[in-house]
């Protein structure tokens, strides 16, 4: 369905080589944000492309890509990547579906369908995408020296 995602990943692979490097640590973590734009070609066909925006509009679809690389000579284990969601962005799912989310600012975590939101009147309801405040991934596999990976999630500008 989301045919452009592979393109994004290709773009990413090229981009993150220039991403900010943290030489002091053995792990490098980079974040990139893309926006979907509809582009109409000369023959009138519309296709979605991803571009790195400097500005966006409410309703725009964003793709967040977090890339991690073990730049050291030793394995890293128990890797956990957390992305607090910027307030103007509504969560719209991840590419792999292996994430945990929080709807209370990172206090409690779980898959979205297990979480409840406390209403002002004391009742609670099932959490929605719009309630998500944080996203995180716990990677069970040890990250070998020199290896890397990426995590992708989508958001909508509120």
């Amino acid at each position: 369905m989301i045919t452009y995602i592979p393109k994004a990943i290709i773009m990413m692979a090229a981009t993150c080589m220039t991403g900010t490097a943290y030489a002091a640590t053995p792990l490098q973590l980079s974040s990139d944000v893309y926006v979907e734009r509809a582009e109409t070609s000369a023959d009138g066909a519309t296709k979605l492309i991803l571009e790195k925006p400097t500005t966006v509009l409410p309703g725009d679809n964003l793709v967040f890509v977090v890339k991690y690389t073990n730049a050291s000579n030793e394995p890293a284990s128990n890797l956990m990547v957390t992305n607090p969601l910027p307030k103007p962005v509504q969560f719209n799912g991840t590419a792999d579906g292996n994430e945990q989310v929080s709807v209370d600012g990172g206090k409690t975590w779980g898959s979205l369908n297990t979480l409840l939101v406390q209403e002002a009147d004391g009742t609670s309801r099932s959490a929605q995408m719009s309630d998500v405040t944080h996203i995180r991934w716990e990677l069970s596999q040890t990250l070998a020296a020199g290896s890397s990976g990426k995590l992708i999630f989508r958001g909508i500008v509120r």
Partner: peptide
């Protein structure tokens, strides 16, 4: 819209290290 990811991991020897990513800033038009 300011986005920063964070990662924590264990290095051999057992100590946990946490690092932030770069921060991407996009302005809402």
């Amino acid at each position: 819209i300011s986005n920063t990811a964070e990662a924590s991991f264990q290095v051999p020897g057992g100590s946990t290290v946490t690092i932030p990513s770069n921060t991407v800033v996009i302005t809402v038009d």
